[in-house]
C-alpha cells in the first residue's frame, strides 16, 4: 500500500478548547486514483496534507496509523519528510498563480525541481525541463520554458506546476482542487492529462475536490467526507448505488442541463450523520 491512514484525527486549538476538524478517517491508496469529495470544512484537504505533514503549527494530529509507503509519517524525522515531500509525493494546489515563483521562468522552476532531486548539470536540467513540459502536452515547450508565470494562462500555469511535480518521478500525486480556478474546457484537459500520466507512470493519485460528478468521472474510487469523517466509500462507477443520504443529496441538489427541475431538492442535514 502506498498510503495507509487509520483513524486519523486532526484538531486545532481554539480559545475554547480543541476543535476537531478530522474525526477518525481511515483510507488506503495503492497505485490507483482515489477521489476525496466533500464540502468546504469537511476536512478533505487536511487529511491529504497530514500525509506530507504540511499542517499549520496549531494543529494536533493523532492516528493509529499514518503511513506513506510503510514510513510512519507521525514518527518520521524532518529529514525523512523532506525526502518524501516533493520527491516521492508531489502536491498540486488550486491556483498556480500562488504556487509558482513570479520572478523565475517556468523552465527554470521545472529545471530546479529536476536538479534538486536528480543532480546533473544545468544544461541537462534545462533540457529535462523542456522534455517535462512537452510531457504535460504543452505545444511549444521551449517558448513556455522561457516565460514567466504571469505570461501564462491559468491552465498553462497548472501544467507547469504538474511538470514540476513530475520532475522527481514521484510515486504519489496529491491534487488539491487542481482545476477549481480553471475554465471547464481547460479543466477537462488538465484532468485527462493527470489521469493519463498517472496510469502511464504507475503512480497513485489523490484527487481532492468539491465536485462529486467530476471526481466520479476521473477516479477509480471515491471517498465522500462529511464533517471530518468518511461517510461513504465507493467505486466511481457505482455512484449510482450511493447509499448514504449525504452522497445522494450532493448528486441531487445540482441543477442539471439534461433534466430541468423547477425547484432544486435541498439537502436536509441529519444530525445522525455526525455520529460515528
Amino acid at each position: 500500500m502506498l498510503v495507509e491512514i487509520k483513524n486519523l484525527r486532526i484538531a486545532f486549538s481554539t480559545p475554547t478548547g480543541w476543535a476537531e476538524a478530522v474525526r477518525g478517517v481511515s483510507l488506503t491508496l495503492g497505485k490507483e486514483k482515489l477521489g476525496i469529495v466533500g464540502e468546504s470544512g469537511s476536512g478533505k484537504s487536511l487529511t491529504a496534507r497530514s500525509l506530507l505533514r504540511l499542517l499549520p503549527g496549531n494543529a494536533r494530529v493523532q492516528a493509529d496509523r499514518l503511513a506513506f509507503d510503510g514510513i510512519d509519517v507521525l514518527a518520521a524525522s524532518e529529514r525523512q519528510m523532506r525526502a518524501i515531500r516533493g520527491k516521492r509525493a508531489g502536491l498540486i494546489l488550486q491556483d498556480p498563480k500562488y504556487s509558482l515563483n513570479p520572478v523565475m521562468t517556468a523552465g527554470d522552476q521545472v529545471a530546479e525541481a529536476w536538479r534538486a532531486h536528480k543532480g546533473g548539470s544545468k544544461r541537462a536540467a534545462a533540457q529535462a525541463a523542456v522534455d517535462l513540459l512537452a510531457q504535460v502536452l504543452i505545444r511549444d515547450p521551449a517558448r513556455v520554458a522561457g516565460s514567466y508565470p504571469h505570461e501564462l494562462s491559468g491552465g498553462m500555469g497548472q501544467r507547469v506546476m504538474i511538470a514540476m511535480m513530475l520532475a522527481p518521478d514521484p510515486e504519489l500525486l496529491i491534487a488539491d482542487e487542481p482545476t477549481s480556478a480553471l475554465d471547464a474546457t481547460v479543466q477537462a484537459e488538465i484532468l485527462r492529462l493527470m489521469e493519463d500520466l498517472v496510469s502511464r507512470r504507475g503512480m497513485g493519485l489523490l484527487l481532492i475536490s468539491h465536485d462529486l460528478p467530476l471526481v466520479g468521472h476521473f477516479c477509480d474510487r471515491v471517498a465522500v467526507m462529511y464533517a471530518g469523517r468518511v461517510v461513504e466509500e465507493l467505486q466511481a462507477g457505482e455512484l449510482t448505488h450511493a447509499r448514504h443520504p449525504y452522497t445522494r443529496g450532493l448528486l441531487n441538489c445540482m441543477p442539471r442541463l439534461s433534466h430541468p427541475e423547477a425547484r432544486l431538492p435541498v439537502m436536509v442535514r441529519d444530525p445522525a450523520w455526525l455520529a460515528p
Partner: peptide, 8 residues
C-alpha cells in the same frame, strides 16, 4: 452529468 444523472 452522465454519472450524476444515473445516480439521481
Amino acid at each position: 452529468e452522465d454519472g450524476g444523472e444515473a445516480a439521481a
